[in-house]
Design a protein around this nucleic acid. Structure first.
Lengths: 144, 144
DNA sequence: TTAAAATACTTACCTAAGTAAGTATATTGG
DNA sequence: CCAATATACTTACTTAGGTAAGTATTTTAA
């Protein structure tokens, strides 16, 4: 049973990425790239660390994805006061397109979730949040 | 909101893989390899097509993962009556270890889900299954 | 004050999975 | 019968993400 639950989560994760990529194809973007653009749109210029902490991935993942976004002219990396940091922001090209892409992606995601009521979506979110690292014992949870 | 739901699914998917890999490290295995071994343990010898259909991945994914399982002596590919097919089965080495690994992985997954009641796990499964391809319209669903 | 430790990012290498195109074998229709 | 089509698998290339180790800059502590 547990088994099947994680299998199902894995499947839906892949399905969502596949479908989002289908929409993003028109903009010559991929899902991981979009997640960074979306992040920058929400929060404005950020350091790479802020991005990978928010997205909950490792630093090298963001380095790689940003290199592509920079090459394709969606994002810029500028030197910060702390010379170790690189401050990332959207380019003019990105600024002008992000809203449209967001709308398209949101439409798609709504479609994928059209079988669930608003209440069910909230329930699903709540249940997913209860999944935790097995390293955390019951005691850890109480200490949150 | 939809947004965050898929983000959460993606995270939990990565988290589960990461933790399973931690356990599998002892056996010099990775999660995708384990999913095939588990499949073979459940169903016995299968063609590659049966494997990728069951796991819901593409054919090349299984080809690649099996090559590694073969190299490391966990699985074998034999010629079938239909010479296009390759019939996959566990080696003796695998037969002797799969039960132990399954127990370890199940323990881990139980731990990750220890925050959920039996009922909540079922609910979660039910809700996940309601997520569908956006290509499917409401009409499609009725026609199931 | 400066040597050691910490931080931010990068590079190199690995698994995982998708698409497109290729090969070999089987099936089907004229 | 055999040419066209379909099927099963493979190969090559791409994105996505993880770990380990490296570099440059900043902070800390003796």
């Amino acid at each position: 049973m547990e088994n099947l639950l994680f299998h199902e989560i894995h499947q839906k994760s892949r399905l969502a990425i596949k479908e989002v990529n289908e929409v993003l194809k028109e903009y010559e973007l991929y899902s991981a790239q979009w997640s960074i653009l979306f992040c920058l749109k929400q929060f404005g210029p950020m350091t790479q660390k802020e991005i990978w902490q928010y997205l909950n991935v490792e630093a090298p993942t963001v380095t790689r994805t940003l290199s592509k976004l920079e090459e394709s002219g969606w994002a810029e990396r500028n030197e910060g006061a702390d010379k170790r940091q690189r401050i990332v922001c959207l380019t003019a090209k990105a600024e002008s397109r992000v809203a449209e892409i967001e709308e398209r992606v949101t439409m798609l995601e709504d479609g994928m979730l059209s079988g669930l009521s608003q209440n069910e979506k909230q329930q699903l979110m709540g249940l997913l949040k209860k999944i935790q690292s097995a390293a955390r014992t019951e005691k850890d949870v109480k200490n949150d």
